[in-house]
């Protein structure tokens, strides 16, 4: 009995270590998806409860990170979007001039004087993201914002690569259209 308890403690400790090492990335992903800190923390808590309840299964995972991200995404879709989000339609904003949004985008050499402007541009970008259909928005967030590869997302989103590529193409095109028409 003592050996079993010791083994369980060891497994739990190992699971804690794995979880903690991925926690900052998972929290950021949760925030990107849910859009607020309270829900992000709830999501992470639920994920941790799910993950730590079966520490002995961790050894069977080839990639805990992929499992964690897939589980986090599923928790978000099942537990949060179902109750909070509705299907999104694309909304168009009529352009009033020919200002190109991207002319004002990120300049890696920007100084403090540019920070306020960048903040405003980020806000416009956020609004554009929120105007995408939810499955396109998720894909852009996970691929272009979080930097996950489409191959990785094929596993996480459980959809064929071709479907994801088509969706990404539509999403990026919509973003370009949306941001060109938005005027600053």
């Amino acid at each position: 009995m003592a050996n079993i308890l010791s083994w369980r403690r060891k497994s739990r400790s190992s699971a804690d270590d794995i979880l903690n090492s991925h926690l900052p990335d998972l929290y950021r992903m949760a925030f990107r998806l849910s859009g607020n800190q309270a829900d992000s923390e709830d999501l992470i808590q639920e994920l941790a409860a799910k993950f730590l309840s079966k520490p002995n299964q961790l050894d069977k995972l080839d990639s805990p990170q992929t499992w964690l991200k897939r589980s986090l995404y599923n928790l978000f879709v099942d537990g949060y979007r179902r109750t909070k989000l509705q299907p999104v339609t694309f909304s168009t904003i009529t352009s009033a001039d020919d200002t190109d949004f991207t002319d004002q985008l990120v300049d890696s050499a920007a100084g403090p004087a540019d920070q306020a402007q960048n903040e405003q541009l980020q806000q416009q970008l956020q609004t554009a993201l929120e105007s995408l259909p939810v499955n396109q928005r998720d894909l852009v967030i996970l691929h272009d914002v979080e930097g996950m590869s489409l191959t990785e997302l094929e596993n996480i989103l459980q959809e064929p690569l071709g479907t994801l590529k088509s969706r990404l193409h539509r999403a990026r095109k919509s973003l370009r259209f949306f941001l060109v028409d938005a005027t600053f």
Binding site: R32, Q37, I44, V106, Q122, L125, V145, R172, V180
Partner: peptide, 21 residues
């Protein structure tokens, strides 16, 4: 334009994880 948008997306801000989490 597409390249700039992708660059901006990769730099979207997000809060740091609360230390107590």
């Amino acid at each position: 334009r597409a390249q700039r948008i992708i660059a901006a997306l990769s730099q979207l801000s997000a809060p740091k994880m609360p230390e107590a989490l």
